[in-house]
């Protein structure tokens, strides 16, 4: 081990701008965003709607094209990284094909990428295990609860070997009890797979509980107002949320959100 790969940032944004031209004039979705994400980081993006958190994630995934600045993913442009299948993306809606079973839904990327039948089956059972859905492969999406559907969609993003997992408010539509459970599972999964995760949320406890790095953003123009390196250990039981450190970080996030938000609007 002469070279230390871990120091190489996975995602690097410098002076990133994204301006949408609308009939009411330009909208600055992102303005002067600078951020470095290292390998194995769990980064949450938090802020009120319109702060550009989802837009930034979509830029990383090459689903949006920045209008200024530079953005690199695994040392490539986002679109090169997309074509090299550098990331798995979990959308807000599970987006499962209703006519495919859960196992067949998870196979979709594997079919596209030309994995052999045997390897497809092997990978499907592996990721179903990872998201705690073993035995549900033969079910159709409508036979599963919302939380289970979202887990299946995470399994689909994990089925191929992307080092980066991008998640856009994956648990936003779920109730808090289910959400707590899924957050705990997500941390286990992150711990076992050592993936780099970008996670958009508007829940302060969720962001603090999950992240090694919390990016606080604010709107008009969409920008980063604070980046918090979490002092919490990697191993996090749910009751860590009652600890002093946790509450302090949550405070700092809340202050950042308040400072960036103009209530005069």
């Amino acid at each position: 081990m002469t070279t230390e790969h871990n120091t190489q940032p996975v995602i690097e944004a410098a002076n990133l701008d994204l301006t949408f031209q609308t009939n009411d004039g330009p909208v600055h979705a992102l303005k002067d965003v600078n951020l470095t994400i290292d390998k194995g980081d769990f980064v949450s993006f938090i802020g009120p709607s319109g702060c550009g958190k989802t837009t930034f994630l979509r830029c990383i995934a090459a689903l949006e094209t920045p209008t200024g600045g530079t953005l690199s993913v695994n040392g490539m442009t986002p679109d090169e990284a997309r074509r090299k299948r550098a990331y798995g993306y979990v959308f807000q809606a599970a987006g499962l094909y209703p006519w495919r079973t859960i196992a067949k839904n998870i196979k979709l990327p594997l079919e596209i990428m030309g994995y052999s039948k045997a390897e497809q089956d092997e990978r499907v059972s592996k990721v179903l295990e990872l998201v705690d859905l073993a035995g549900f492969g033969g079910k159709f999406p409508w036979q599963l609860s919302g939380g289970m559907q979202q887990r299946a969609s995470i399994a689909r993003a994990l089925a191929f070997d992307a080092d980066i997992l991008l998640m856009d408010e994956p648990f936003g539509a779920l109730d808090e009890i289910v959400r707590d459970h899924l957050n705990e599972q997500l941390l286990h999964l992150w711990d076992r797979t050592n993936k780099t995760i970008g996670f958009v949320t508007h829940s302060i406890p969720e962001a603090v509980y999950l992240s090694t790095k919390i990016v606080v953003m604010s709107p008009r123009p969409g920008r980063i107002t604070d980046v918090i390196e979490s002092p919490l250990p990697r191993e996090r039981p749910l009751d860590i949320r009652d600890s002093k450190e946790f509450i302090e970080i949550a405070h700092r996030v809340r202050d950042g959100l308040r400072a960036g938000h103009s209530y005069d609007d």
């Binding site: 689903l63 997309r82 074509r83 299948r85 798995g88 993306y89 987006g95 990327p109 596209i112």
Partner: peptide, 13 residues
């Protein structure tokens, strides 16, 4: 409309 971004995120043109 429903699945194009999903497929795009899987590396498809």
């Amino acid at each position: 409309a429903e699945y194009t971004e999903q497929l795009r995120s899987l590396g498809l043109s």
